[in-house]
Design a protein around this nucleic acid. Structure first.
Lengths: 343, 343
DNA sequence: GGTGCAGATGTAAGCGCTTACAGGGCCGGG
DNA sequence: CCCGGCCCTGTAAGCGCTTACATCTGCACC
C-alpha cells in the first residue's frame, strides 16, 4: 500500500509529514514546527512559504507524534454510564465546551454494555491526561482508585473517595425542602420511589426525605426500591392502583420515574395531584409539558460538567488537587403536580 | 518536577515506562511489549514476571507512543452540533458502542458555540483515524471536503457530497405517508412547520409533505420556516392563535417543535386534535407521555451511529469507500394527536 | 573595522513504543 | 557428535514531532 498517494496536481493527499512540508518549503522541520506552533521567531516570508506548503500538501500533523514529544495528550477522558435522558447529555455538553476552550479534546467512554469495564478504563487512561468519572457509572471503586495515582481523576456526583477530587450537586437539603413542601400541602402518606442504594445521589435525596419527616416528628415510610428506568414507572403505578402501595404523595428519585408513574396513574383515571401528588428530580424538558407540570428540582448539570473539565485541566497543568468536595446548589421548581395551583 | 515519583513501598505511582517495567522484570522492552500486546511468543514464566512488574509499577502505556509506532490512533472522531434531545444521544450511544467493540475510542466534538469550527475540526483530525460528521452539524462543506482525502469521512444524515460516504434515515417517503395519514383524517389545511433549508433531512420531509398533497391533486401551503428549537414552538403557537396561520393540522419538523406548539395551544384552550391536529418527527420520550400521544416517525438513530462507526472502521482497515448513500428505513408511529382514536 | 547582540534558522537528541532481524539454547535425527 | 530447527529473547531502527542548543547573518555602536 502506497503511503504517500499523489494527486494529479502534484499535491499529496495523505501521508504528508513535517518532513515533506519542510522540503517543499525549503526549510528545516524545526522551522515548520515553529510556524505551526506559533512559537519561536520566524520571518514572515519564511512563515508564508511554510503555510503555502502546508496548504498544498494538505498537511495534517500527527497528534500522536506531538503528544509523544510534548508528553501530553491534550485530551480529557469522560466516563459516563450511558446517555439516555437530558442529564448526561447536559453534563457532557458542559464538559466538552469547557474542555474545548481549554484546548483539550474529549474522549468519551460509556460503561453500559461494556463487558470488561476495567480494561476499557485502562485503555482510556492510555490516551488521555486526566479522567472524569460519573459516580453512578458503576465504576468499580478499585478501578477508580487505580486510575487515580496514574492520572488526575475527578468523580462527578459520586461517593467521594479518599484522596480523589469530586464535584456534585446538593441533594439532601433540597430533597428536604421539596419533601417539606409536599408535607406542607397537607399530605401525610409520602412514599419515596427509587433505590437509595442505587446511586449516591439517590441516597442523599432519600436522606433529605427522611429528614423532612423527622423535622415534623413524622416517621417516613419505607422507600419503594426500584431502579430509575422509565419502564419501572408503570410497574410502580400498578402497585399503587392495586392498593399495594398506599400513598397520597410520591417523591420520586428522578423525573423519568415520576413522569412514567404520573402518566400511568392518570390513564387509570387517578387525579394528580388531587388523588395523589407526584414530584420528581432533574427538571427534564418533559416536566414542563405534562399536565399538571411536574414539580421537581433543577440541578446545575451543565455547570457540573464545566467544573469537572476545569478541575482536570488545573491538575494537568500542575495544580494541586482540591480535595474538599465541591457542592453546587440546586433549586426546587414548583409546578402543579405537588398540589400547588396550576400555572 | 520529579518525573518518577516513588511511593513508600518502592512502586512508582506515575511516569512508569516500558523501560522501567522491563528493568524491574529483568527483561528487554521488546519482551514487555510482546507480553502486553499478546503478540509473539513469550514463555509463561517470563510473561508472569512482566505482568507482576506492570502491576507493581502500576504501569499504563502511553497511547501516543504506541500510536506513533503503529501509525494508527485507534480512535474515531464524531462531530455533532450539540446534544439536546434524544436524537444525538442515541446516535452517539450507537456510535460509541460499536466503536468500542471494534477497539476504537471515540473523540467527540460539539460544534455549537465553537468560534473557529474549521480549526477545531482540523485539530480533531490530528488525533483520530477517521471522522463521522452529523450533516446538520453546520460543518462548512469545504471543511468536510478538506478532511476527506486526509482521513476517511462519513456524513450522517447530511447532504451527500461527491465522493464522501453517507448514511441516513429515510425521510421523504415516510413524510409522505405521515402527511397522507393526516389528509386521510379529512384535514384540508395542513401546514409544515420547520425550515426546509435548515437541514437536509427537513428538506426531505418537506418534500414528502408536498408529494402527499400532489398525489391527491392538492396544493400544499407554504411552510412556516422556523428553526427547530423548543423556544420557537411558543411563537408559532401564538401566530396560530392570532389567526395569522390558518391550519387544521400541523406537520412539524420534529417532536420538540410539535410538543411545544401542542402544549401551548392546549393551554390556550384549543383542542388537539379536535381543533387542530399536530404530528412530529423523532418519537422522543415525551411524545408517549403527552395527551394526546404525539403521532410521529421513529428513526433508527442508534443504528445510524452503529453503521457510521462500522464504516469508518472498515475504511481505516483498508476497505474501499462505499459511495452509494446508505438509507435506513423509518416507521410512522400513530398515536392520538393526528386525530386517531386515543389509545 | 571590530565587537556584541538579537533575530532567524538549522542540527540533533530525544519522547515511549513496536517490530524486523539477529542471536542463543536446546532438542531430535542423521 | 554435529546440525537444522524451533522457541524464546534481545538489539536496534524507526514512527513524526518538539525543542535546547549551536550557528549564522546582519546591523548598531564604539
Amino acid at each position: 500500500m502506497a503511503t504517500a498517494r499523489k494527486n494529479p496536481d502534484g499535491t499529496a493527499s495523505a501521508g504528508a509529514t513535517i518532513y515533506s512540508v519542510a522540503e517543499r518549503a525549503g526549510v528545516s522541520i524545526a522551522t515548520v514546527s515553529r510556524v505551526l506552533q506559533g512559537a519561536g521567531t520566524v520571518s514572515t516570508t519564511t512563515a508564508q512559504k511554510v503555510l503555502d506548503a502546508v496548504d498544498q500538501l494538505n498537511y495534517v500533523p500527527l497528534g500522536a507524534a506531538r503528544s509523544l514529544a510534548v508528553r501530553h495528550h491534550e485530551a480529557h477522558g469522560l466516563v459516563l454510564p450511558e446517555l439516555t435522558g437530558p442529564y448526561y447529555s447536559e453534563l457532557l455538553m458542559g464538559f466538552e465546551s469547557r474542555a474545548a476552550e481549554l484546548g483539550q479534546s474529549v474522549t468519551l467512554m460509556l460503561t453500559d454494555g461494556k463487558a470488561d469495564l476495567a480494561r476499557a478504563v485502562r485503555q482510556l487512561a492510555t490516551r488521555v491526561d486526566a479522567i472524569a468519572v460519573l459516580g453512578s457509572a458503576a465504576m468499580p471503586p478499585a478501578v477508580a482508585r487505580a486510575l487515580h495515582g496514574q492520572k488526575p481523576v475527578v468523580i462527578i456526583a459520586g461517593t467521594p473517595q479518599e484522596g480523589i477530587e469530586s464535584v456534585r450537586a446538593e441533594n439532601a437539603h433540597s430533597a428536604e425542602q421539596l419533601t417539606e413542601h409536599v408535607l406542607a400541602h397537607g399530605r401525610t402518606r409520602l412514599v419515596f420511589v427509587g433505590d437509595p442504594e442505587g446511586a449516591p445521589d439517590i441516597a442523599e435525596r432519600h436522606a433529605g426525605f427522611v429528614a423532612a419527616h423527622r423535622a415534623r416528628g413524622l416517621e417516613p415510610a419505607a422507600p419503594v426500591r426500584v431502579p430509575f428506568r422509565e419502564g419501572e414507572g408503570a410497574a410502580v403505578a400498578e402497585r399503587i392502583l392495586a392498593g399495594e402501595i398506599e400513598a397520597d404523595a410520591l417523591v420520586c428519585a428522578n423525573d423519568e420515574l415520576a413522569l412514567a408513574i404520573m402518566s400511568h396513574l392518570q390513564d387509570a383515571g387517578r387525579d394528580v395531584p388531587g388523588d395523589i401528588a407526584v414530584v420528581g428530580w432533574d427538571d427534564v424538558m418533559t416536566s414542563r409539558y405534562v399536565r399538571p407540570g411536574l414539580t421537581t428540582v433543577r440541578q446545575p448539570v451543565h455547570e457540573l460538567g464545566v467544573i469537572a473539565a476545569e478541575r482536570l485541566h488545573q491538575r494537568v497543568s500542575g495544580g494541586l488537587p482540591q480535595l474538599e468536595p465541591q457542592i453546587l446548589p440546586t433549586e426546587v421548581v414548583v409546578r402543579g403536580s405537588c398540589g400547588c395551583p396550576t400555572r
